[in-house]
Computed example of a mutant assay.
Amino acid sequence: MVSRNRSVRRTKAALQSALVDLLLEHRNLQAVTVQAICDRASISRSTFYLHFENKEEVLSTYLIQMIGRVHDALRAWAGPDDSRWTVYFAHIAHIAPILSSLSDRSGSHAILSRYERQFAVIMQDLLMPGRVTPLEPAVSYQAHYFSGGLLSLTWWWVEQDHCVTPAQEMSRRYHALCSGQLCP
């Protein structure tokens, strides 16, 4: 059973890696086909469909795993509060080309909605550590407010700023906004 689980993880990772590579080449999720993913991963279409329903699920699973890593890093942060979000913005800079392929033009709203919901859970955990799910009504509105602001700022950074502003500066700006300060 352990080797079967390991094999499943390797197959899923190969498919995710293939999709990410193709997204970096094509810059558009719609331009990537399931067959191209399978060819890049050297995996048959039937094996693909044993693990995923479609390419959107492959990408969604990949992004959720990335969010999990960021969540772990944010929870472990021991530095100053105004630079905590450097971890997040550095991660976004790394995957910005993938996120750019998910603009509304490519019809990937379901993936982005799942990404947003996951960030609301992360925000709740940061507001109330140890109580990750489900979203508590008492802090749900706060979690959604802060995650919505963060994601809106993220899209601005990826699409308008093209991640030119350093992650450390974006962290400082986000912290200032959350603290009710305006910053240049």
Rank of each mutant, 00 (worst) to 15 (best):
S147M: 04
Q142H: 12
S17D: 15
L99N: 05
L112N: 09
R9L: 12
L151R: 04
Q181S: 13
S60L: 04
S108H: 02
S3G: 08
L127Y: 00
I111M: 00
S83W: 06
S101A: 15
H91Y: 11
Q16N: 08
Q35A: 15
A41Q: 01
V87L: 06
V164G: 02
I122A: 01
D39Y: 08
Q16A: 11
S44W: 01
A14F: 03
L150V: 07
N54G: 11
H162Y: 11
A18I: 05
A96Q: 07
Y145M: 15
I67M: 06
H51K: 05
P129R: 07
R4H: 11
W85L: 05
Y49T: 09
S17C: 09
R4Y: 11
R69A: 09
L74S: 03
Y141W: 14
N28W: 02
H26L: 03
R10I: 06
I43T: 06
S100R: 14
T61G: 13
S3C: 07
Q118Y: 08
R27L: 04
E53F: 06
D104M: 06
S101W: 12
H51M: 03
S113L: 15
G148V: 09
D82M: 06
A90L: 10
T47P: 03
D104R: 12
D81F: 08
I67D: 04
P184A: 09
P166A: 09
S83R: 15
H91S: 15
P134R: 00
H109S: 13
H51D: 01
M170D: 01
S106N: 07
V32P: 01
G130T: 07
L150W: 02
A14V: 02
A93K: 10
Q142W: 12
L99R: 03
T11I: 03
Q30C: 05
A167S: 11
R84C: 02
V2Q: 13
R6D: 02
H144I: 01
F119H: 13
L153M: 15
F146N: 02
A18E: 00
L102Q: 07
Q118R: 14
R40H: 03
T86P: 09
L24I: 12
W85F: 10
L23V: 10
D21S: 13
L127T: 03
H162C: 10
F52V: 04
I111V: 11
A73D: 10
S108F: 00
T86E: 15
S140D: 11
L74I: 01
G180S: 11
Y174S: 07
S100I: 07
H94W: 11
E25W: 08
I92G: 07
G79Q: 01
A110C: 02
Q16L: 06
Q168V: 15
S46W: 11
L135F: 03
L126I: 02
R84D: 01
M66Y: 08
F146Y: 12
T86W: 08
V70N: 06
S179L: 03
T154K: 00
K55M: 04
L74K: 05
S100A: 13
I111S: 00
H71E: 10
P137D: 05
A18L: 05
L177A: 13
A120H: 01
T11G: 00
G79Y: 00
R4G: 04
E56A: 04
N5R: 15
G79A: 00
L151P: 06
W85D: 03
G149T: 07
E159M: 09
N28Y: 04
F48T: 07
D72Y: 07
D104E: 11
